[in-house]
Design a protein around this nucleic acid. Structure first.
Lengths: 331, 331
DNA sequence: CTGAAAGCGCTTACAG
DNA sequence: CTGAAAGCGCTTACAG
């Protein structure tokens, strides 16, 4: 099937391409009669404009880029639903990229964005990322960037996240109230600001809290936690600062024959839909993932539409909520 | 920061844009010396080619479109990881769209693909979709389409899915062996071929199996299942044909005070990472989601590269696996 | 091996 | 209100 172009449509109508273009866009310089004729013919010939021609000419792509550390995580996948919802409304397209927790990959992805492929970028940093120079080059090119969840530490940047300090404080306080004496904070990364903030929050409640770095896949995390739980003075309260560390903790307890919550109590930062169905049900700090995605996208579009100024003032702290369940029940 | 174009790069080098273009692509018509000079300068000026100019000229976008019913589902999100992995390797970009189970939305998304925005399409059909005319127009335009998981019923099309008939048979047989007498099959849609096939497989093992349509969100599903479980002659074995129906079944049992597996046994088609941590652990039919995504993308790129012929011969049936757990334990 | 020129399919000042 | 023309930034026959 031959692709029909604006020129062909114009020829069919015995009008100039310029006029047809304006008519299709609903320009008010065009008479109602002409506009209708054009619309009719466009429909009849099933004309679909070439987006790349238009992008090239208008120097805007109607596309945003989303960079995530991983997709198979209930928080990030919900977040995408939020982003997609507002992008769809705005008539924007969404390109997805995964950094797989690699700084190198993340930098390569972001570098490509300098090409003008996207009008704006939504990013949640990889666990390895220790600086955001690669993102500053986007700002230099006037491509707005909004950080969400795993935001950076800079202040002059748009950041949409929960109040991680507060959430950490709540989680640790909750464990203390449940009677825990030796808390352990499980961390997936040494670089992420939000993890540092969660830990800082924990420390405010429990200054003596220990911290354990658990990198790698689920199995490696499990082994690392197992090790910590096999120690003589093992922790009796665990805070899993990301979802996968929550799974890994349950597995480690099972494999060591430790009972939750009598031997160890557990709270996890998690949006897993099955938290209440686990054995025992898992106490979670839930982040409003869909809303975070929606808000981040909304702020980004504001930046795109208004030409990117003072986006840092659009930063939002969205509350998370601690949901107490069986895994932290008192003796 | 001013964006540097091919023309500027050429001027800097006192070469023609054509020569520079060829040098950057590593064309063998260009001398080694020139090539190196060009590469050097490109690096120094941090030249990034405009993808849309190149797309317009070459009539290819280096982009694929992925259409999913939903993102927040462990099967689909894993699938995306597989797709992204092979797209990344191939230097392709991935546009994501959600149909939210709506035929209307799906059709609108696919219609846009006629514009040449993507070189190929990967789709898992919405629950409402009863025909695939919208997708045939892509084939007419020589845009290859690969269906995955929720495939259509046509044979002359590339389809990557598990053996759903077989999986249904295995699930129902497993429940019968566990002692169930009254089986109920929970379905999220009346249109999806794969669901029909799962049911057909169940019927082969258990001709008398009943079927219940549960549409809507998790809460609505829960209510519908609750109703069925509150009947006098209630089922004692449930097959949840998609993941969310598995959650809903657990909730319904909890709210009715029914014990799994003694009152009701449950098996779910699911890739949830927490299946073994549930109370009780959930017997699942697991689909190799990552591999399905990878395979679908690989087949699609074959179609894109070779110009789309006989893609239907690339269809694959990938085995799923029944993992027996506590929810179907014998009395 | 290098360059001049045309053109991908749009949009948008500018003229009338 | 409509049209002619230039141009977005590339690539690619074609010439030399």
């Amino acid at each position: 099937m031959r692709t029909i172009t604006l020129k062909m449509l114009a020829a069919e109508l015995r009008l100039s391409p310029g006029t047809v273009s304006k008519a299709l866009k609903g320009s008010h310089e065009i008479s109602e009669a002409t506009r209708e004729k054009v619309m009719d013919m466009a429909r009849r010939l099933d004309y679909v404009p070439n987006p790349y021609a238009s992008s090239l000419r208008r120097r805007t792509s109607k596309t945003i880029g989303v960079v995530l550390p991983a997709m198979a995580d209930s928080f990030f996948s919900m977040t995408i639903e939020g982003i997609e919802a507002v992008a769809g409304d705005k008539g924007y397209h969404v390109l997805i990229y995964l950094s797989h927790e690699s700084y190198y990959k993340e930098a390569a992805i972001v570098k490509d964005f300098q090409s003008g492929r996207v009008d704006g970028v939504l990013i949640s940093l990889s666990g390895e990322t220790w600086n955001t120079d690669h993102l500053h080059t986007l700002t230099d090119k006037n491509i707005p960037v909004v950080y969400f969840d795993r935001v950076c530490e800079e202040n002059d940047v748009a950041r949409i996240a929960t109040d991680d300090m507060e959430a950490g404080f709540a989680a640790a306080s909750h464990l203390l109230e449940a009677g825990c004496k030796r808390l352990l904070f499980l961390s997936p990364s040494d670089n992420l600001a939000i993890i540092k903030r969660r830990l800082a929050g924990c420390r405010k409640a429990a200054p003596g809290i220990a911290s354990l770095l658990c990198i790698g896949d689920l199995h490696q995390q499990h082994l690392r936690i197992r090790e910590a739980l096999a120690m003589p003075d093992r922790p009796d309260g665990i805070i899993a600062s990301v979802e996968s560390l929550g799974y890994a903790t349950y597995q480690a307890c099972t494999s060591l024959g430790l009972e939750i919550p009598s031997d160890v109590k557990v709270v996890a930062f998690s949006n897993m839909p099955t938290a209440s169905l686990l054995h025992p049900s898992l106490t979670t700090v839930e982040q409003p993932a869909f809303e975070i995605g929606k808000t981040a996208a909304t702020v980004l579009f504001k930046g795109i539409e208004k030409g990117y100024n003072h986006l840092s003032e659009e930063s939002r702290m969205i509350p998370s909520v601690l949901v107490p369940r069986g895994s932290t029940a008192k003796a």
